[in-house]
């Protein structure tokens, strides 16, 4: 697979001396959905701003479609659409004008039919003649998406697209992003909602403190770092763990009321039968069974939490 964005040894030090990116290397594949996760101040917006041309890199290179973002900015920026994190809008403009402006300023010939389609897809058509200040926050967010799509970009950056958007609308946006991907658009999104990354992304990148901690296929990541847990509720609490069960790696929980078997990371799945048989052999009776799989959130917290 070819990279549509290629970032090498990228650093960014702001004018006040703060080092927001400390040597980031990242290859973004054409047509994928990449989710960037990271706590507040991790450097997500900084990274996006450099790729889009709003900030200048301190050192390192960024190529978009094989072109350098500083030297060949006309080629790279024409490929990119950006939905910024902040709800910044021309309050006194109409929806139609602001979206049409976006297409023009990217150097594309006017195409009212396309703008109409985009507004309809984002359920903004009824509001086309409304001034932006008359819209709700969620509608403004969609206007920003419409603006980013107006010049038919090949790469779409969404900096926290669903912040402040209600659940139903969020689902609608995910669906819209899914449709975009089908047309071959590469999507990079940052988010604090881990379920969003879990649901949409092909790959997950985790940024913290200006460093990219990892980039992985979502499935591989969950498999590699995900833990599973089998939890058995006992009818009668145990004083201590019988040696046969301790030998299988079980632990006692809830003051002797629960038995816990941890597996996952590709190990321990085969022992569930043995665990159940050993419990049977000890003559213990079970009142309830539960399994739990660690989420991306657990993985994320443990990754970021490991950092000093």
């Amino acid at each position: 697979m070819s990279s549509i964005v290629s970032i090498q040894k990228l650093t960014k030090t702001y004018a006040n001396g703060f080092s927001a990116l400390k040597g980031v290397d990242l290859e973004i594949r054409e047509g994928e959905i990449l989710a960037l996760l990271g706590p507040n101040g991790a450097g997500k917006t900084t990274l996006i701003s450099i790729i889009c041309g709003i900030s200048v890199p301190t050192s390192g290179t960024v190529l978009v479609g094989g072109h350098d973002v500083v030297q060949e900015f006309r080629k790279t920026r024409a490929l990119i659409g950006l939905v910024p994190q902040e709800l910044t809008t021309d309050q006194f403009e109409t929806v139609w004008n602001t979206v049409t402006f976006s297409r023009g300023v990217h150097g594309a010939k006017s195409n009212p039919a396309l703008i109409e389609q985009i507004l309809k897809d984002l359920t903004l058509w009824d509001k086309r003649n409304a001034k932006l200040r008359e819209l709700s926050g969620g509608m403004k967010r969609r206007v920003l998406i419409a603006k980013a799509l107006a010049h038919e970009p090949r790469i779409l950056f969404l900096d926290e697209p669903t912040a402040g958007v209600d659940v139903e609308l969020r689902r609608g946006m995910w669906a819209a992003i899914g449709r975009l991907r089908e047309t071959g658009v590469t999507v990079i999104l940052t988010t604090h909602y881990i379920e969003e990354a879990e649901e949409m992304a092909d790959r997950i990148g985790v940024i913290s403190g200006g460093e990219l901690l990892l980039v992985e296929e979502k499935r591989a990541l969950m498999q590699k770092l995900g833990r599973k847990q089998l939890r058995l509720e006992l009818k009668e609490p145990l004083e201590s763990l019988p040696p046969t069960l301790a030998a299988l790696g079980l632990t006692l929980a809830d003051g002797g009321r629960g038995l816990v078997h941890e597996y996952g990371n590709g190990a321990g799945e085969g022992r569930i039968g043995a665990v159940l048989a050993a419990i049977e052999a000890e003559g213990l009776s079970i009142s309830d069974v539960a399994t739990r799989q660690s989420s991306l959130e657990d993985i994320f917290v443990s990754l970021v939490g490991e950092r000093p």
Binding site: C52, I54, K75, T76, L82, E86, Q91, V105, H106, G107
Partner: peptide, 17 residues
Amino acid sequence: FPKFTGTIYEILSAPVS
């Protein structure tokens, strides 16, 4: 005004000199 409201992001990220 775009600087003040933040809408300048669009001009800075557009393929314009």
